[in-house]
Structures are given as structure tokens and as C-alpha cells.
Design a protein around this nucleic acid. Structure first.
Lengths: 336, 336
DNA sequence: TTGAAAGCGCTAACAC
DNA sequence: GTGTTAGCGCTTTCAA
């Protein structure tokens, strides 16, 4: 039979409640008692039963990762970080796909939270940006941490300074002699698209280049949208010599168009992206991109969430470092 | 306050136990009573409390997905399928990374199973192939379903006829006039590597081509291993005109080598892979590969597992269909 | 076919 | 600091 708290209590010569206190790190236990109980629990290989704990304590020791149709890689990396943190803190994890556009989006989150008695939520873009949801969660007192939310103030979670990253990237292109640098924008529903566009504009400004509306094309983060945007750009009377796509998938689309038109990369056209996906290393030539420490972001966001659950005042919005990943898809601007 | 089984019982004019019977689909309830209880439960928006259920019933209504460092995409697709099935059957999911090579691998699975009271496991390669683990699980009476296990007989789960898929692919290359078709093998620890090699040999045989050991190079499913294997192949005195890599990542590595040597694909060299990863569509030229319905496999494996949990005799090993995905990376063999 | 009572293993509330 | 008691919401067991 399973070892129960009662068995541990008997073996340690204390009451069940004291064992419970030790397990839950409550401060009101004498150090000596605590040490003894811990030793006994360990030697008996005792682990509390999650359902009993949850039933009696009205907590689930469960957090949920909420997502809506992100790229598989992105989500996977976040997930790996989240899993790491959950293991460390002995929390369980529920993985929950959601439909952000569904009319009963709010309702479905609410019933998930209620029926699973979740202790907290980890939100990923674009769910991070549903004001209605955040308001509702605040009203319910449900703790949540955001990964790369649009609104970085006040909440808890992690962000990356995407604006500065892109700005650096554009300056890099300019330093290679490019003067016609195009941008393929991201999906309009994602905050990232705005930051990356803003970074593009700041980068141009810093490099002393003019912003030209014809060099900015709408995309939606997909390979195909990158393909059609690149076609438009390369069909211009004065096509760009460099393209910054708001993510790697669209950059791959742009490269594909260039290849099929016989343009050499980076000889005739430089291309760069954002995300440093595994794919970016595997295409030819390898893609210059911005690295974002996604897994670490998942781990730290979860850490902040779990801290907040214990002590509501302790969670913060963490700023993560980015890094330009310079590879072979960018090079000196072609001479006229 | 939350609606409890007692509230439903009162409203329906029956005992708690009868409501419980209805919820758990026990047969010994009069149809009329069952219908009434179901209607009342629905109208009150009743959902049983998982921890109470689990505590009293000594079941967790939880299954775990066990994995060890697979490709992010593969795992993500499996995961999405697993999540779908779990939602449908109202089961919870635990996501658990494992270290197959760790000395306490068995122990860590066992304590996971014990302490989380898991009702079943979904195993992914290469964990599917640990004989020691499978034996232990059988001994414990712990139900599990495998995705693409080495041993397809007797167990429950899903498989794909990888041998036949590769065989078809090789025949396709042969039909394009290729006579020197190389193979980059997969990681030796994965069953898939063996099947794909066997399919390669069968394909050659069917096409009337000789098996030439110098055309078969070890790989380990990574891009880099594809790169070094392709270098060896292209350095041969009589290099191949086509390369079948055991997965898409290695195929991308091979393409990268070809590009950097100025070889045209498929003009000078045809390349094909296996998995139909998103990346395979995004490289240039788009990669010919084998599609395997990974998400569906996750969903169906989970379905078989959950069926088995209800009725131990009902689980099967399902065979999934594959499909060649012909794209631009393969073409007619170059003339001598 | 249905119900009453006794737990499942833990924590909350309160007493000491 | 520590212990006692009474549940948490469900299923099991056994009786009807």
C-alpha cells in the first residue's frame, strides 16, 4: 500500500498536521521538528497524493498553458521551458488549445479555470492580448503570466525588446551598404508585428535612410504570405536589395522567390528574418535572424507565475536579452 | 458555490450514487432514470470535481505523454493529436520528458506512474523500444499505447508502413532514370532507421538496381549529420544522382551541400526525405518527401489507449496510411 | 435497479 | 509550536 501522511506522522512521532505543515513549508514549525519530519518522509519515500491534497486544499497544484494556433516550434520551445519549471516546483501542467476568435472564447477559459480548479495560467500570443480575458482573469483573481504580451506594464511574465532587436538588424543591413531595405510585416493580430515594424522604422532613421511605403508589404507570418510579399517587392521598378521579414517563415518564402527568379543570395538580395527557428539554419544559404531565447522565456514566465501564486506581490515582468544571429543570407549590397 | 453531485441528486430526485452511476456509464440504471439525471446535470451545468473523483475512485483520469528529445515538430504534432483525444474523452494529460539513457530511467517512469496515479501512458520513439520498460509496465498492469514502435505485434498503438513508403519512393526515383541512388541512414537507436533502410533495399531490388554499400552512409537524423553524409557521397568517384535521406532534416543538409558546391537540384542531383515537416515545404526547391499523418497518429494512439483503459481487451495496433509528397527536389536523372 | 454509510488522503479551522 | 476534528466531493461496499 501507498505511504500516507499518517504513516509518516506516526514514524516521526508527530501529528498529521505537523507533517502537513512541513510539506507545505509553513513557517510555524520548530526547525528541529521540521528536519526530523523531512528526514522520515524522505526515508519512507513519501509523496503526498495530489488528488487528496487538491480536494482538501481547494487548490489543484495545476497550471495551464493556453495557446491558439502558434507555430509548432515556438510553442514547443515555450512548452519545454514551462515543463521544466513545473517539474522544479512540483506543479502539474495542463496543455490547452483555444480558439481566440470563437464567440465563447471567454466562456471556455472560464469553465476551464473553474472545473479544473487551475492555480494559474500561462498565456502565449495572441491570447496575451485579449483585454477582455485579462480583465476577467483579474476580476476572478486568477494569477497569470504572459509571454511577450502587447502590454508590458504592470503584468507578470517575460518580454523581449523586439523593437531594439530589429533596429539593430536594420542598422546591420545599412552598414553593409544597403539603402533600399524592405520589410514584410507580421500578422496584424500579433503585438510582435507592431514592434518589429516600429523597429524597422527606427533602424532606417538611425541609419539615415528614408522610410518608403512601397517597401513595406503586409504579411501574416506564413511562408506563403512571404512568397507573395516578396513577389510584389521584386516586381517594383526599383526593387530592394535587402528584405527584413518579420519572421523566419516569411523570410524563407522570400528566399524561395529569389531563388526561383535566379537571384543569388546574398549577392543580389540579402534576406533576414526573426525567431531563429531550426529551419533558419537548414535552408540555403543559412538565414540571418534574431535569436529569442524561447524556452528560457517559457521557463521564466512559469517561474514568475508560480512565485505569484505563492506570494501575489512577487511576480514581475522580466526582460529577456536578444541576439542577432548573422549567417550567410545577408551580405554587402550589390553595386549599381 | 460549485454544483455538487448531491445537488444534482436532489434536483433529480435520486441518490448520489445513482447520479454517479449515470456519470460513469454504468449499465445498471433504468433508461428513464438515466435520461432524467443527464438532463438535470446538464441543465445545472454540472461537472464532477476531478480531484474528488480521483481520490475516491483511485483513478486519476490522467494519461501521460512520454518522450525523449524528439524533433520539436514531430512531438508537437503528436501532442496536438493527443490533446484532441484527451479533450474528447475528458481525460487530463501530463507531458513528461524523460531521459532514455539515464540509469534511473525505469525508476523515474515507475515513480511517475505511482505518484501521479496515471491511468495510462502514450509512448513515442525511442521510448517505445525499451524492452525493459514495456515488460515492467506489463507487469504493473499499466496500459500504454505506442506511436511507431519497433515491435508492432501484440501491443496497442499506431504504426505506419515505413518500409513500403520508402520502397515506393525508391521506385519513383528509379522511374525517373536514376540508377545510382544513395541513402543516408537514420539514428541507430530508432526503429524507423531500420525500416527505412530495408525499404531502400527492397526498392532497389524491385527496380532491378544493385545495392552498393558505398552509397549508404550513417546519419543520425540531424541536419549536420546529413551535411557530412552528403559530402562523403558527393566526393565519391562515381557520386549518386539521387539521395534518399531517412528524414527531412538530413535531406536539407544534403541539399545545402549540393547548393554550396554549385550543383543544381534536381538538375544535377535529386534529393528526398521523410516526414513532410513544415520545413520541407519551405526550403528551395521544395523537398520531395513521405507524409506521415503524425497528428492523427497521436490522436488515434490516445484513442486506443483510452479504449483499453475502459476495456482492456479493446485496444489495437492501428496501421496508418502514408503518402508520397512529390515536390521539386526530385527530377529526371542527368544524362551521362 | 437503487440507496445509505463509510471512507479515499489530505488540509482548514480552531483548540491547546 | 503543535494537535484534534471535521470535512473537501466523490466512489466503494454492502444492503435492500
Amino acid at each position: 500500500m501507498r505511504v500516507r501522511i499518517e504513516d509518516v506522522a506516526k514514524a516521526a512521532g508527530v501529528s498529521m498536521k505537523t507533517v502537513s505543515r512541513v510539506l507545505n513549508n509553513e513557517p510555524t514549525v520548530k526547525d528541529e521538528t521540521r528536519a526530523r519530519v523531512q528526514a522520515v518522509a524522505k526515508s519512507m519515500n513519501y509523496r503526498p497524493d495530489p488528488s487528496a491534497r487538491s480536494l482538501a486544499g481547494r487548490k489543484s497544484y495545476l497550471v495551464a498553458l493556453l495557446y491558439d494556433n502558434p507555430s509548432a516550434n515556438y510553442l514547443m520551445e515555450i512548452l519545454m521551458g514551462v515543463v521544466e519549471a513545473c517539474q522544479e516546483y512540483h506543479y502539474g501542467l495542463v496543455v490547452q488549445p483555444l480558439n481566440y476568435h470563437s464567440p465563447d472564447f471567454l466562456q471556455s477559459v472560464e469553465s476551464l479555470v473553474t472545473f479544473s480548479k487551475l492555480d494559474g495560467l500561462i498565456l502565449t500570443p495572441p491570447i496575451t492580448d485579449s483585454v477582455a480575458l485579462l480583465d476577467r482573469l483579474d476580476a476572478l483573481g486568477m494569477p497569470y503570466a504572459c509571454v511577450s504580451p502587447k502590454n508590458r506594464e504592470g503584468g507578470i511574465g517575460v518580454t523581449l525588446d523586439e523593437h531594439d532587436a530589429v533596429c539593430d538588424m536594420i542598422e546591420h543591413l545599412a552598414s553593409l551598404g544597403h539603402t533600399r531595405i524592405a520589410h514584410i510585416k507580421g500578422h496584424p493580430a500579433h503585438g510582435a508585428s507592431e514592434w518589429r515594424l516600429a523597429g524597422y522604422r527606427s533602424g532606417l532613421r538611425r541609419a539615415g535612410l528614408r522610410y518608403e511605403p512601397e517597401l513595406v508589404i503586409d504579411g501574416e507570418f506564413s511562408f506563403d504570405s512571404g512568397v507573395s510579399a516578396a513577389r510584389q517587392l521584386l516586381d517594383l521598378e526599383r526593387p530592394p536589395t535587402a528584405i527584413f521579414a518579420a519572421n523566419d517563415d516569411m523570410a524563407a518564402g522570400a528566399m524561395s522567390v529569389a531563388h526561383s527568379r535566379g537571384l543569388s543570395i546574398p549577392g543580389d538580395l540579402s534576406v533576414c528574418g526573426f525567431d531563429n527557428t531550426p529551419m533558419s539554419r537548414q535552408i540555403f544559404p543559412a538565414l540571418t535572424t534574431v535569436h529569442q531565447p524561447t524556452q528560457e522565456m517559457g521557463r521564466l514566465a512559469t517561474g514568475e507565475l508560480l512565485k505569484t501564486i505563492k506570494d501575489p506581490a512577487s511576480g514581475q515582468m522580466l526582460r529577456m536579452p536578444y541576439a542577432l544571429q548573422l549567417r550567410q543570407s545577408t551580405g554587402p549590397a550589390p553595386r549599381r
